[in-house]
Design a protein around this nucleic acid. Structure first.
Ligand code: ZN
Ligand code: ZN
Ligand code: ZN
Ligand code: ZN
Lengths: 127, 127
DNA sequence: AGTTTATTGTTATAAAATAACATTATGTAA
DNA sequence: TTACATAATGTTATTTTATAACAATAAACT
């Protein structure tokens, strides 16, 4: 259980409190009062947080969310559903999918280290 | 079977001939001699080609590949394996995965229109 | 204490994508 | 064919996202 540095903690807190995925420059504008002034400071913290599995990047949106799973195997296996109407992003509890996809990869002779799955559609509220 | 416009055809040909995913600005620099001079021309063609299912975007790389499937349901269901060493990208023939994931989504009460799955690891050559 | 390694601060720039608006081509219907 | 609508193109400028490069601090290790 790795301890976060100051910048990492500040940036994690903002992402974790947010109800929606945050973009790097949105984060930046929200932490400038705390002394984090430039993009590299944000991106460096994001990179580390991703490495630690504390946050994930939603690739299709260039945005970042806190991990909801604590069990997604240090960010080696991530799955999300993304509402195309309200933009809500939900991390899918991935034990079954994960098992299925590992199995699939093994049979296919793929030596994968990581996967990311993104579903797009309508959430319960919006459909 | 929709017919491509001039710009769409030029850009599709380049992507289709390429053995690796191409980035938008790489494409641009390769078509300037053919009169396509500015980013919007490239991005517009890319958008249409994606809509038609002729190409896919590899979200994690901001790069584009020609569809290898002709059966990926007009780009509603895409899956790739990506080599982290040589950058090779292979489109996974997705009928089984597709069936499994549709099923999963249905059970979860998700009304999804589309999904994208990206595996990262080492290809056969590199492992 | 001295050395190495990780993190931070800072400026500048690169890379990816879109906004806005004018122009031309294509399809459709009278 | 002409008139109208729709789609595609051309063009300039700008926005958004991400990284390079290098100096300064802080933390960890011997
Ligand atoms: Zn997670
Ligand atoms: Zn919604
Ligand atoms: Zn395909
Ligand atoms: Zn490889």
């Amino acid at each position: 259980m790795q301890t976060l540095t100051r910048n990492q903690q500040i940036i994690f807190d903002i992402i974790n409190k947010s109800s929606e995925p945050l973009k790097a420059y949105t984060i930046l504008s929200n932490v400038q009062k705390k002394g984090i002034k430039a993009p590299p400071q944000v991106y460096r913290a994001l990179d580390k947080l991703i490495e630690m599995g504390k946050i994930h990047k939603i690739e299709s949106k260039n945005a970042f969310v806190a991990c909801q799973n604590s069990s997604c195997n240090v960010s080696k296996a991530t799955a999300f559903s993304i509402c195309e109407s309200c933009e809500e992003v939900t991390e899918i509890s991935n034990s079954k999918i994960s098992k299925y996809l590992s199995n699939f990869a093994e049979k296919a002779g793929m030596e994968y280290k990581k996967y990311n799955l993104e579903f797009f559609g309508l959430c319960k509220k919006c459909k």
